[in-house]
Nucleic acid binder design. Structure first.
Lengths: 341, 341
DNA sequence: ATTTTTCTTGAAATTCATTACAAGAATGAT
DNA sequence: ATCATTCTTGTAATGAATTTCAAGAAAAAT
């Protein structure tokens, strides 16, 4: 059943049927009703691929994430999807599982015009390649970013957020503060380390090199292992800022398994403010990223790009917020309203 | 740059270029190399939508999930995506956020031929509608299912798994066993309740109606609230089987907030075996669903359907497994290898 | 060397909706 | 009543690949 069949049945031209579907105001009420009746009667569904082919729009965008199993990204994705659907777009999901090659593979969807634009929630590609690509296709970065990149980017200020997290520990009196790093090949890993260093420096605190635990991936297990190494030191830290909540939960597990208490023996701050942060015991103090909003914002900028609107700013920095809970002490009571956070 | 341009440059017909791309064995080595050289030289990318239009295949499938933010589904999704990519398919993600209307909306992608098939990880539609749809389009259900539905379905046996979970509590000596239910409008909610009832019955244990906590959604908060109600009873239960891990974690929070201990005062069993189950304290005993495998299996059946292969079985029941941890007592030590689970 | 078979290749049709353009009808202005 | 303007509709071109069919070339068989 195609448009021309509907046209015949309604005694109009295919052009008119097309107009009824996409520009109904161009068709007289009488004709329109006649056509709509036939459409309903035969249950006609336009062949969208044919439309896409003709209009050169797929109304589909690609969202590339480094890890779909991460609670962080699924919130961002929801922000993306809501905005996408509201604007009539579909979302294709591309999970790279932290692999640059797979990130590269997804670019083909753009080159082959299968999607109208791309949202990168990971940025491990080379800067030049990405910029070159962004000249020809609508691309927006979110969460991760590349320094000085000439492509719209939505994220928080990771350095200052990490500084804030570290300073929270310092203000609570900790002097032996350590950092469990994220992956150093990702800018977020480097930024959060940088923020940590800045905070220590500006409070005239030494950073023992063994207090900086690099290595491993972003997993819970990695957080566990790195905390174990810190605990094995002759003088372990009393406060630890961890790259993200998932690793922080691994780190907490390590502390508890070692028979130590949080926050009395070791205070911990995480990053991302996952839902789980207020479920684990003790509740985890953490930097909140406005995940849903980041997704929304990134998607709406992408749509602007697709519509060839001029984007004046290239960098959109969202507000982060330190949620103080029990894992650092200094506040031991969590109100019942907090559990809804 | 289109195929005909490449053809001209290589002094061949467009048909030959097409064959080089999709059936290279039909083209002589000499011609093939010549064409490939031009393709590389001008960096030609075929227009995939045009191909889709012509071949009536999009090589894209739709995966409809009730909630992308759930840790459970993201694992299943990964199984789906791996298999999809291996077979040359893209995955469009449809998040319904537990709404039947949105589930319905996604069906349009099928009707309009935007996808070659659909994977439903939720099944709130009417049976007849779904069966009718499945006659015309490749559809596979996973995780959820509909009784007696004539559409391939991949899932575990929820009733027997729930029975197993409940029996674990009973075997540990609990007689006052309660169930915190999932949503009753979802078959999984009803099944797990049924399994709970069966286990109680077959051990001649009464089920106090107030021990069956219905209502609410699948969220952590709901688990918290329902456990609070159980604790408020004159004689609270000593063991609780909770619909899923997320709710179980909410329930654990309620127990702890009430100053009670797990498992000494209240033993808890969850369902799904999320990664978090072995992070929360105490580690949560839970029924494992082979999430990744379910995704894999469902996707490969879908591909078989797309390829019009005959599927003999309609129901694929995967193995579940009870992971015994600390939340029920009876085993207090968790080996270090377990933490990798 | 001739016939048969298999390999290669190209011409042209096909997929289905959109849209520029033009023409005719209807409305409004004078 | 006539002309100008606006509305409505249809004709036909268009997009970029794939694929059927046929023809000519090459290889194999006799």
């Amino acid at each position: 059943m195609k448009m021309s069949d509907v046209a015949k049945m309604a005694n109009v031209s295919p052009a008119t049927v097309s107009r009824v579907l996409s520009n109904p105001e161009l068709v007289s009420k009488k004709t329109r009703d006649k056509v709509l009746e036939v459409i309903n009667q035969v249950n006609y569904q336009p062949h969208i691929v044919a439309r896409q082919f003709r209009t050169k729009e797929t109304k589909t965008i690609l969202a590339v994430v480094p890890d779909i199993t991460s609670a962080f990204f699924s919130e961002v994705l929801r922000g993306i999807e809501h905005t996408a659907i509201r604007e009539g777009y579909q979302v294709i999901l591309g999970d790279t599982e932290n692999s640059v090659e797979r990130e590269n593979d997804y670019i083909n969807l753009l080159l082959q015009k299968q999607v109208d634009g791309m949202l990168l929630l990971t940025a491990r590609l080379e800067k030049e390649k990405l910029e070159e690509l962004a000249e020809h296709f609508p691309i927006v970065l979110a969460c991760e970013y590349i320094d000085g990149l000439n492509v719209p980017t939505v994220s928080i200020d990771n350095i200052s957020a990490a500084r804030k997290a570290t300073e929270h520990l310092i203000k609570l009196g900790h002097e032996r503060v350590a950092h469990i790093c994220g992956p150093m090949n990702v800018i977020l890993g480097r930024d959060r380390l940088r923020g940590f260093r800045q905070a220590m420096m500006s409070h005239d605190l030494d950073v023992d090199p063994s207090y900086i635990q690099e290595g491993g991936n972003e997993s819970l297990e990695s957080g566990y292992n790195q905390m174990m190494k810190l605990l094995a030191l002759e003088t372990p830290p009393t406060g630890v800022f961890v790259y993200n909540d998932e690793m922080a939960m691994g780190a907490m597990k390590a502390v508890k398994n070692s028979g130590l208490r949080i926050p009395e023996d070791i205070a911990i701050v995480g990053f991302d403010n996952l839902k789980m942060a207020s479920v684990v015991e003790p509740h985890l103090t953490s930097i909140d990223q406005p995940k849903y909003k980041i997704g929304q914002k990134a998607m709406s900028i992408l749509i602007q790009k697709i519509n060839k609107e001029k984007i004046t700013k290239q960098s959109f920095v969202m507000k982060d917020h330190l949620f103080i809970r029990q894992s650092c002490g200094g506040q031991s009571f969590v109100s019942s309203s907090e559990q809804k956070t």
